[in-house]
């Protein structure tokens, strides 16, 4: 077999009209930028090597000693627990608020808008402190009629522990932030999808769980991953109310041994690990819910030559109708 180039050469020679230039191989232009970027990468690598590895001050042996230390692991566990619980609760609140904001009932819409407004405006730190010191505002919590009798009551300080205050504060915060993400996911879905669901008579529940929901998950995964990864780090803010998660533990340790940098490094390594896991989850979600949106097959397979329209009663050629 001759290569296509050889065949072309043959044809041109046969015709007696060969233009040598036409057959020269094509190569990319030499690129200075490419070489410059390689040099830069090597430079950065050595800077990093000097900064991180050959730098006594990092005190790597100490970092590794603490990385799996008893107290750090306990702190890490607290961070993970807090993140998981608040993420679940926060997303649940977010869905409710988004649903209220899309409701045909004006009162619900206004309530949701107000909630989102307050959460957006309040720094998380303030929110956490307010909840923790709720007892100063309302000495007891209960269900009843405002200004009237109450059916059931407990002292606020019994309900609001450091842990519950942390969970409440963080999930209320995530609830407000994620509500808008959920809402954007719903309104990103084409109106025709809602109409098609109504036309075949799907119930609202089926419409959302089988058709609209999966399509919005695809849209909201990247911004939601952002919010949730931010949660890992936001958990460190609960140190203001004295709950000891990962970063607080690191702080407590370096407050006594003055190894500030190595202990912060320990915390960062764990945050990097947690973030990597979350990002892996994100990529799985994107793959799962991206199905049907990016072509799986190449164009070749699209138009199968054998295909024709066969109908039971008749087969009509295009020409008959047009």
């Amino acid at each position: 077999m001759k290569t296509p180039t050889e065949r072309t050469a043959q044809r041109l020679t046969d015709k007696g009209e060969i233009r040598a230039e036409a057959l020269l191989p094509i190569k990319p232009r030499p690129s200075i930028a490419k070489w410059a970027s390689i040099v830069l990468a090597v430079y950065v690598f050595f800077v990093g090597l000097e900064f991180f590895v050959f730098n006594e001050n990092w005190n790597w042996p100490l970092v590794f000693e603490y990385l799996f230390g008893q107290r750090i692991l306990q702190g890490l566990l607290n961070t993970i627990t807090l993140t998981l619980i608040t993420t679940l609760l926060g997303l649940f609140i977010g869905i409710l608020v988004a649903w209220a904001k899309l409701s045909p009932l004006a009162v619900l819409r206004k309530l949701a808008a107000m909630y989102i407004w307050v959460i957006r405006a309040t720094p998380l730190l303030v929110l956490l402190l307010m909840i923790f010191f709720l007892a100063a505002l309302v000495p007891s919590l209960g269900i009843g009629i405002p200004f009237g009798p109450s059916l059931f009551e407990v002292p606020t300080n019994e309900v609001i522990s450091r842990f519950t205050a942390a969970v409440l504060g963080l999930s209320l915060y995530l609830g407000g932030k994620s509500a808008e993400v959920f809402r954007s996911g719903i309104i990103a879905v084409d109106r025709g999808q809602f109409e098609a669901c109504r036309a075949v008579g799907l119930s609202p529940l089926t419409t959302y769980t089988r058709v609209i929901g999966p399509q919005s998950i695809r849209v909201i995964t990247p911004p939601m991953a952002n919010e949730i990864i931010t949660m890992f780090k936001n958990t460190s803010l609960v140190s203001v109310i004295g709950y000891t998660e990962l970063l607080t533990t690191a702080k407590l340790i370096y407050a006594t041994n003055f190894q500030t940098i190595p202990l912060l490094t320990v915390a960062v390594i764990w945050y990097l690990t947690l973030t990597s896991i979350a990002m892996y989850g994100q990529s799985l979600l994107e793959k799962r819910f991206g199905r049907g949106f990016d072509r799986r097959t190449d164009k070749e397979e699209q138009r199968e030559p054998t295909e024709k329209v066969e109908t039971r009663t008749s087969t009509i050629a295009d020409g008959d109708i047009r």
Binding site: E195, A196, R218, G292, F293
Partner: peptide
Amino acid sequence: KLNFGMVFQTFNLFPNR
């Protein structure tokens, strides 16, 4: 609505199914 079947100009198939 189930008495009626509707076919839309823009198909409106469910892309995720």
